[in-house]
Simulated scan of single mutants.
Amino acid sequence: MSIDRTRAMWPQIAAVIIERIRNGTYPPGSKIPSVVQIANEFGVVNSTAQRAMESVRAEGLTRSEAGMGTYVLRPEETATA
């Protein structure tokens, strides 16, 4: 997926992360890149990357652990999330 810099970035970044989760690039239980890493990868500010990550979490695909990172939910976790 290519990024269109003429449109809002955070929904596009969220879509890329969701696609990576769905295609197994980020498998269940795995830690995904930090907000800073996502911001650097896409050339955006941290707040834009944070908004994208919040959107992915709102989809019920990830969980965050304070000080530990963000992890892809396992199928058994999504049933109760």
Rank of each mutant, 00 (worst) to 15 (best):
F42A: 02
R51H: 02
T62Y: 14
S34Y: 01
L61G: 07
N46S: 12
V36S: 07
Q37I: 01
Q50L: 08
R51Y: 02
G43E: 08
V36P: 00
V36Q: 05
F42P: 05
S47A: 10
G60A: 07
R63G: 06
A39L: 04
S55H: 10
Q50G: 09
M53G: 06
F42L: 04
E41G: 00
N46V: 11
G60P: 11
M53I: 13
V44W: 05
R57C: 13
I38P: 06
V35A: 12
L61M: 14
V36T: 09
V56M: 11
P33N: 01
V56H: 11
V45T: 12
R57V: 14
Q37S: 12
L61D: 09
G43V: 07
V44R: 03
A58P: 02
M53N: 10
A52G: 07
V35R: 01
S47Y: 06
N46F: 06
V35G: 09
V35N: 07
E41T: 14
E59F: 14
N46P: 05
S55M: 13
N40L: 08
R51K: 07
T48I: 11
E59G: 06
N46L: 07
G43P: 10
A52Q: 07
F42Q: 04
A49I: 02
T62P: 14
V44D: 03
F42M: 08
S55Y: 10
E54V: 10
E41H: 10
R57E: 15
V45A: 13
P33W: 04
M53E: 08
R57M: 15
Q50T: 05
E54N: 15
V45H: 09
M53K: 05
M53L: 15
V45K: 14
L61R: 04
A52T: 04
G43M: 08
V44M: 03
G60L: 12
V36F: 00
A39Q: 03
M53C: 12
G60R: 05
N40S: 11
S47K: 08
G43T: 12
G60N: 08
S55P: 00
Q37R: 11
V56N: 07
R51I: 04
A52V: 10
V45N: 11
S55F: 05
A39E: 02
R51C: 01
A49H: 01
T62Q: 14
A58W: 04
